[in-house]
Design a protein around this nucleic acid. Structure first.
Length: 447
RNA sequence: UCCUGGCUAGCUCAAUCGGCGGAGCGAGCGGCUGUUAACAGCUCGGUUGUAGGUUCAAAUCCUACGCCAGGAGCCA
């Protein structure tokens, strides 16, 4: 009696009879042959029905099977270079086929390109397609690589609350909801403040969960709900933070290369771009980056590009600026020491240069830009209180946060990494909305 | 919020200067023992985003509105 196997393990069963359980992804027939491309969640494999091998009734059923029908197939595995699929190169000669359900004939997703609006309206079906399946498999590997790396480095995964009482960085970008008799609660846009509490109990921690931003951003790099990794480390300075980011990103890229080769191949990803993602990454000061950008701006002759590249010291980088900086290297680049004015209130000022803070962004190459943002945190209670007052933030809401600095304060640092941005970069795709199963954007909350 | 672009068959797109709305995919019926989003044949499929306007004549020009996308700002 053959056993049920998964398509991803097909190469172990050449010459044997097996059972596959899955869905008909595509069907094409050629006279006495019917080719079914069957997906089972773990991969895509071609199954071939030959008229002479089956009863007339069964062959008729197979040759009429609608796309997306659920089936249980018994057949023999063989190697065949012609066979398409992921991983591909293997096929199953059908000996028996049971239709679990014949799908409706009006399945809307064609095996070709769709417009963005239509594809997103049908996201619940779109995720079945090879491209989306491949991207989301890479996402899963990115997330497992994150946990592998940090757990291996002695970090503790302590997740932080999603319902929070107040803003860390201003209320205008927060989603608000009612909270019984306590007034308003807000969906967390960062777990950092709670991470900071956790390090004083556990040393090195991270949270990894959904985070919410009510920013009215409409770009290929923004979602209103995305999964952010936030490590936070006690007794860690800015250089130590960059070391951790470097190790993490290297591990992610190398894990994806090793374990998602078939997915990357299907997506047409240029593997060499990921192979070079190995630390150490270049570390550039904001001052040097600014100097370079100003030179570029002054040299630019095309008026339209010149307007885009407009830059002076003190500004935060726009997307065109990030692209120019990342063009200098074939791997991610750190930019550190941003002006305090463009960064959050809790970042540690640079010694003897209060206008600059100990912040660092990690910019990915090929135009992907910022994938991590972090800093050394302000550890002095008096300086932090002064900064909270200056920002006009409600001091009573930060009472507990200030107390962290009162009882055994230490230099500490942390960063946030956007899972979808990293996944999109690994996959080489245009828009991060395809790097999450059900994207939430400013204009979309269905399905 | 601002700038730019788009809206034609279930889907992806054509339609020349304002002059009879087409094709591919899909669905239906045939054909073919190696297809790779098969191919070749026939059939089905339309209130051109909505409301007005100009004109002998509007998918096409004008006005308003709606929806979507890309970008800016902001950020992971």
């Amino acid at each position: 009696m053959p056993s049920h196997i998964s398509v991803s393990k097909i190469s172990n069963y050449v010459g044997q009879d097996v059972i596959l359980k899955g869905w008909v992804y595509n069907r094409t027939d050629k006279g006495k042959l019917v080719f079914l491309l069957v997906r089972d969640g773990s991969g895509f494999i071609q199954c071939v029905a030959f008229k002479g091998d089956l009863t007339p009734e069964l062959f008729e059923t197979v040759s009429k099977l609608p796309q997306e029908s659920s089936v249980i197939i018994t057949g023999s595995v063989r190697e065949d270079k012609r066979a398409p699929g992921i991983p591909g190169g293997y096929e199953v000669g059908i000996k028996d086929l049971q239709v679990v359900q014949a799908a409706g004939l009006d399945y809307p997703m064609a095996l070709k390109d769709h417009g963005v609006d239509f594809a997103l309206d049908n996201r619940h079906l779109w995720i079945r397609m090879q491209s989306q399946w491949a991207i989301l498999r890479v996402r899963v590997r990115v997330m497992s690589a994150v946990r592998e790396y940090l757990d291996g480095q002695g970090f503790f995964n302590l997740d932080t609350p999603i319902l929070t009482p107040a803003a860390a960085e201003g209320t205008s970008t927060l989603f608000e909801t009612e909270y019984f008799d306590e007034g308003s609660a807000f969906l967390a846009q960062t777990g950092q403040l709670y991470n900071e509490a956790n390090i004083f109990a556990f040393g090195k921690v991270y949270c990894y969960g959904p985070t919410f931003r009510a920013e009215k951003s409409k770009t290929r790099r923004h979602l209103t709900e995305f999964w952010m990794l936030e490590p936070e480390i006690a007794f860690c300075d800015l250089d130590g933070l960059m070391d951790i980011e470097e190790g993490l990103i290297t591990h992610i890229a190398q894990s994806v290369l090793k374990d998602c080769a078939a997915e990357l191949k299907f997506l047409g990803r240029d593997i060499s771009k990921l192979e070079s993602v190995v630390g150490p990454f270049p570390r550039m000061s904001y001052d040097d980056a600014a100097k370079y950008l100003i030179e570029l701006y002054e040299k630019e002759t095309d008026p339209e590009r010149k307007e885009l590249l407009k830059f002076e010291w003190g500004m935060d980088f726009g997307a065109p600026h990030e692209v120019e900086i990342t063009k200098l290297h074939d791997r991610p680049v750190f930019v550190y020491g941003y002006p305090s004015a463009v960064k959050a209130f809790y970042m540690e000022p640079w010694p003897d240069r209060p206008e600059v803070c100990k912040s660092v962004d990690l910019l990915a190459p090929e135009g992907y830009g910022e994938i991590c943002g972090g800093s050394e945190r302000m550890s002095d209670p008096d300086k932090l209180r002064a900064r909270i007052q200056k920002e006009g933030l409600p001091e009573e809401a930060f009472k507990w946060y200030l107390e962290l600095r009162k009882y055994g304060s230490v230099p500490h640092a942390g960063f946030g990494m956007g899972t979808e941005r990293v996944t999109a970069w690994m996959c080489g795709i245009e828009h991060i909305r395809e790097a999450i199963p059900f994207p939430r954007t400013i204009k979309r909350i269905y399905p």
